[in-house]
Design a binder for these strands. Structure first.
Lengths: 236, 236
DNA sequence: CCAAAAGTGTTATAGCTACACCCATGT
DNA sequence: ACATGGGTGTAGCTATAACACTTTTGG
């Protein structure tokens, strides 16, 4: 049960820390950037909305626990995570010394319709722009993760993680506009993204839309990896 | 003595973690990128070279402990630190569960001639390229911090931290070449860096060189901050 | 006067920005 | 036929890359 069997006695005082994992789950509904929050059922901050998170068990690796933490709370699984920052102010948790390592991840909202039964607790998507006071220092964590998302999405093709497997160029553009909070020129955006040559035109078209149906594209990860190895760099 | 007074009993098991701070100190000798390492005097990894680091005390903030840790080990002080990543594999420390948060910092080697007396232990500058097997997972940490330095220096004017207050454009170019491991064109480099208008020509010249003496420049941080606020972005 | 590094301008190319109209579909 | 969003090309501008010789100092 003791995770630190060989630690000298005089250092025992240092082995009293708790470390939590907090996760910012971003989603996109086709219009606005969303964040998944859970309602706290326990003290402290009972009743507040918070980032999904939990304590790290001493017998588990840090990075590989993130998926489990999120899965337990929300049923989400098999996501990619990016570690962002570790927050360690002494007074950030009112009950004791708990540091937290933050991560963000991106989910296709459509894949995970929020079925309340599948959640261990109340979970809800919020518009990024509507989020007010969260538990602990979670507003600060959220903002840091959002900044990281904004820089990452401009240099790595991670946006596709937020869209269904087949998507239109307009959907992709709306996603970039929502995350970067800018208006992009349609022609220039298409020229640029298509010039990168890792989008496959599936040949399929949108169905049941009362206007000219858009072509559906797929992200070709194999192709992206192969051109990336040749020194190609993604940038929007 | 207990840093977690209000933690419920059933969670005690989670409050047995140790967290260390490890710091990658980069320097530049005018030619090569250097890293400051210390020789371990104690088990585990006794006799190995390692990143300067220490355990975080439960009563201290994470980010503000970095300076103290480094100061105790090396006498360095008042540096800027950038947090890079937290490493938390279960088996990364042979004596118990110790996670580590890594930081890098930049020092002007000339300001801190390595006076052995001022060091709590054996410390030495190594060429980045000559570093072989380090204690723990410190090679991995070093590589991660170096990657971060390479990306940061291209988008933030942090290179000046490695040079004396007055420096020549050639020194600055050599620094960028050493960190990014590329050859840069002298004329293009000067055009670009001078076009950013945050270097002050001090009017002073190099002394005691057996060739045409170079102009000495200073980084104007005030001016950098003011143009940055207007939306200017640094990029090399 | 020789060695050594400092300093400087132009041209060609690639990438970016700005901008307006026709097309395909459902109702 | 109309409403709705899908889809496309060009021209001007800006940034980048490639490239070689003259200048100033010390010895």
């Amino acid at each position: 049960m003791n995770s630190n069997p060989l630690i000298p006695k005089e250092l025992k005082h240092y082995f009293t820390l708790g470390l939590s994992i907090d996760c910012v789950v971003f989603g996109f509904d086709g219009e606005k950037l969303k964040v998944l929050l859970i309602e706290r059922g326990d003290s402290p901050f009972k009743g507040y909305w918070a980032l999904p998170g939990d304590l790290l068990a001493p017998e588990k690796d840090l990075n590989s626990s993130v998926n489990d933490v999120l899965n337990n709370l929300t049923g989400l699984n098999d996501l990619f995570f990016e570690q962002v920052e570790t927050f360690g102010e002494v007074d950030r948790h009112p009950f004791g010394r708990v540091l937290t390592t933050s991560y963000y991840t991106l989910v296709k909202i459509s894949d995970y319709e929020l079925n309340p039964a599948s959640f261990a607790c109340e979970a809800k998507w919020f518009n990024m722009e509507d989020i007010s006071e969260l538990a602990f220092d979670h507003n600060k964590i959220l903002n840091t993760c959002f900044d990281k998302l904004q820089t990452s999405i401009r240099i790595k093709p991670i946006g596709f993680e937020l869209l269904p497997p087949k998507f239109t160029l307009t959907e992709l553009q709306l996603l970039y506009e929502a995350i970067l909070d800018v208006k992009l020129d349609t022609r220039n955006f298409r020229k640029k993204i298509l010039s990168m040559e890792f989008l496959i035109n599936t040949g399929d078209l949108q169905a049941n839309v009362s206007h000219r149906p858009a072509k559906l594209f797929e992200f070709d990860e194999m192709r992206y990896n192969s051109i990336k190895e040749k020194g190609f760099s993604f940038e929007i």
